[in-house]
Amino acid sequence: MHFRIGKLPFLFVPFLLIAASPVQARNVEQTASQSKDSGQYVGSETCKGCHEDIYKAMERTSHYKMGFQPGAPGKGVNCEACHGPGKAHVEGGGDKSKIIVFQNLSMADANKRCLSCHTYGNEHANFTRSAHASNDIGCISCHSPHHAKTEKALLVEKQPQLCYQCHTEVKAEFSRPYRHRVNQGLVQCTDCHNEHGGFLPRQLRTSVAQDQVCFKCHTEKKGPFVYEHLPVETEGCTSCHTPHGSTNPRLLRVSQVNLLCLQCHTLAMSNVPSQPPIGPAHNQAQKYQACTMCHAFIHGSNFSEVFFKP
């Protein structure tokens, strides 16, 4: 696609005329607890007088731009949009009890302040129901408007080190020989997981077509196929693979492929009632040592019921 930055497509001009109206500033919502009396605000330049280092750090962030929103109470309310009106704090000689200090808030209250603006979009929509929120991991656990190490998303630490600070087992998994290249910077935790929560367990994302997120990169496994390998669709990729990292090739759950296959494909007296998979009659000890040497297209096939062909 060709984007011509600086010249907007004709089709979107009507939308832009509506959107660029002065009322757009209403999108900078103020929480109920904040005063709408502009007289209580002193402006960010006042805050800078005592908190110059913090102010300078924030100047390069996207929050700083909010001070240029026309119509917001007062002029340049960057600091006070989060910390509340500052007049009493200034007049109290820097009295911390007269200003909102996030370290003194509960995580839930701190989250509310962030979500009062960052409430739009699917990315944050499920945060209150997320595993992070349920475990008292809030916005300021990972983000910092003043001391961020990354410009994008204002994270206190880069991925994946940020995630490793709590998810220590994942750090070990990504160091195994067969792994997704997270430590090498090719893949990020947020490529597969929505850190702010989602509709699926483990905060997993989905593909565009609401299928498993694995298919975003592993497109040839996606199908649809005439002959589906049933567990791929019903149980998911993790029925055979460990997605972070494994000591086994192809990130399999076991070291020997035949063992994995036989644990499902076994003919027993009271087998799974539906159908095959029956067990193979192959002599495992002498030949047929590798199931996938013959059943090479095990994720699905259009031309072979036994997955010999693609």
């Binding site: 036989l262 076994t266 027993a268 067990g279 009659a281 192959h282 002599n283 495992q284 000890a285």
Partner: peptide
């Protein structure tokens, strides 16, 4: 898991 397989 219990499995049935041929080995001879």
């Amino acid at each position: 898991a219990l499995i049935c397989f041929n080995f001879s």
